[in-house]
């Protein structure tokens, strides 16, 4: 192990390390802690300039209730789910198939198609913005969650294909050959042989895509407006403009908006990290 395991160092170093850990963590999360503390303060405290002193009252429940009753944040969150969940399902379905095709079959344009997906995945969003907005308008899905889902599914298919293809490539190919020798057709091989082995990849991509899409802000502002279709990222920006000096509400709102991916991360940490670090080791 590198660096040297702390148990093998002197007792003083060990003690220092144990003190350094929480101190470093508090410094690292300081901006976030500040927001969390603000979110339980009363408006009175903020008005009287008591930003960082001991709060005169703890308004945890009041503030968070106020966020839900004074703003359409519940609607925004619902919209976020309406965008995120279908996107996860759509992108994973499409890319399981493309990834399978690119990993298992040898044909001339294989590598070109694969590189198209990879390259497209790196493209700056702005070069897609004007035509995609136009297309969304033409399809009649501008300002709807469907419009966002369609774009996100298409774009995420790029990243997911890269992931799936490399994952399937690492599976033992003999399994597929054996199935073919038995006369199993290609669709059955995909469904009964390969797909069950892809469960870790499917789980990893599901959490990753969920987080990416939940946190998307750019496309939310380009393809939607107003509380009827906007997801929570764009909604939060709007609320920030409305609640100019109500910092306790803005911070409570931010924490609410950040919750779903955070919960997702803690529940599926192993898959999340294995997805994110895929390729980081040989």
């Amino acid at each position: 192990m590198f660096p040297k395991p702390i148990e093998k160092t002197s007792p003083i170093t060990q003690r220092m390390y144990k003190i350094a850990l929480p101190v470093a963590l508090i410094i690292w999360l300081l901006p976030l802690i500040a927001v969390a503390l603000t979110s339980i303060r009363s408006a009175g405290d903020l008005n009287s300039g008591n930003y960082w002193g001991w709060p005169t009252s703890f308004n945890l429940i009041e503030n968070y209730t106020a966020v839900f009753t004074n703003s359409p944040i519940a609607k925004y969150i619902l919209n976020s789910f309406k965008v995120t969940i279908p996107t996860v399902i759509g992108a994973i379905t499409l890319s399981a198939m493309t990834g399978y095709a690119l990993a298992v079959y040898r044909f001339k344009s294989n590598l070109i198609i694969f590189f198209m997906f990879v390259a497209g995945n790196f493209v700056p969003f702005q070069i897609l913005m004007v035509p995609v907005r136009d297309l969304t308008l033409q399809l009649g899905v501008y300002n709807t969650t469907t419009g966002l889902v369609l774009f996100h599914v298409a774009f995420q298919t790029g990243f997911c294909t890269l992931f799936m293809r490399n994952f399937i490539k690492a599976l033992p190919f003999e399994l597929i050959e054996a199935a073919r020798a038995e006369g199993v057709n290609e669709f059955q091989i995909f469904w009964y042989v390969v797909l069950p082995l892809m469960k870790p990849a499917l789980a990893a991509l599901a959490v990753l895509v969920f987080t990416f899409i939940w946190n998307d802000y750019f496309w939310a502002t380009v393809l939607t407006q107003g509380a009827n279709s906007q997801p929570v990222t764009a909604g939060l920006y709007t609320l920030n403009g409305q609640w100019v000096s109500a910092w306790h509400l803005v911070s409570a709102g931010s924490i609410v908006a950040a919750m779903p991916p955070v919960i997702m991360f803690f529940l599926m940490q192993k898959h999340f990290i294995s997805g994110l670090t895929f390729g980081a080791i040989k």
């Binding site: 198209m116 997906f117 497209g120 493209v123 070069i127 897609l128 004007v130 035509p131 995609v132 297309l135 369609l150 774009f151 298409a154 774009f155 298919t157 790029g158």
Partner: peptide, 8 residues
């Protein structure tokens, strides 16, 4: 992917 990425 063609419709939403490459063609745009």
């Amino acid at each position: 992917f063609l419709l939403y990425v490459i063609i745009p």
